[in-house]
Design a protein around this nucleic acid. Sequence first.
DNA 1: TATATATGGATAA
DNA 2: TATCCCTATATAA
Length: 286
Amino acid sequence: MPEGHTIHALAARLERAFSGRVVAASSPQGRFAADAARLDGHELHGARAHGKHLFVDIGPATLHVHLGLIGSFPVRPAPGGVVPAPLPTVRLRLETDAHYADLRGPMTCTLVDAEREREIVGTLGPDPLRKRQRPERARQRISKSRKGIGELLMDQSVVAGVGNVYRCEVLHRQAVDPLTAGRDLSPDAWTALWDDLVLLMPLGAAFSQILTMPDQVEAARRLRRSGRARAVTESLTGERLGDHFERRFLVYKRTGLACPRCAATVQDRTVAGRTLYWCPACQVRR
DNA sequence: TATATATGGATAA
DNA sequence: TATCCCTATATAA
């Protein structure tokens, strides 16, 4: 389930559970055993996300994780130090007497130095979930491209952290035709897309759920502003606690159903190797 | 039991 | 564009 919001929420959860603490590290699955041994028994200093990349400082090393399409890294409480035996697929388990976190199915899990981290971050476009970003840099890239905006939004060197759901949904929210060539997209349309991502993605991180339906976005914003939002956490068994919303989208996975704005039929088509969903009637060149 | 699919991305061709 | 990697889950057979 990982788009950028998932990774930013994960970094925050890792910090809350482990920052300033000595962690035990192991690799039940075995493929990360030698590196896990280097982390084992060291203090975790911090964690940060850049787009879909996660970096965790443990002792003298930095752990670099990319969850890919199917990875997960749940952080759970371990009251009294009681933790379940890891599934055999767990690449890396981090553990204290209060929490444990199991990394499964990552696309990338390696130790990196500061130089390599800078290299990786250097390949990424602006990230709507980070402060002091320069969306203008993305607009420059987009304005020179003949590729469609639906394809460009999936390019992490253009914008970092957007995945297939946010791409489909933000294009629908801003009524932009995904097939519009980057060079034909107006600066105003790009600004609207960026600003919407800056609104939506932090809500996704806060509620551990992609929220794009206008009523849900409004409700989530009110909850946050009121300060009464209950953070989403997982129990020992993985049960989801805290505020969450019914799973609903504007166009994502809604092929053949009515567009919620104009009632035309939602279409799909493969763009950038993934299934793009959009309304061919009300999403237009802007 | 087998197959398809998934909120990703690298690499081969 | 096709293939591969990584894992879990839903659906088909």
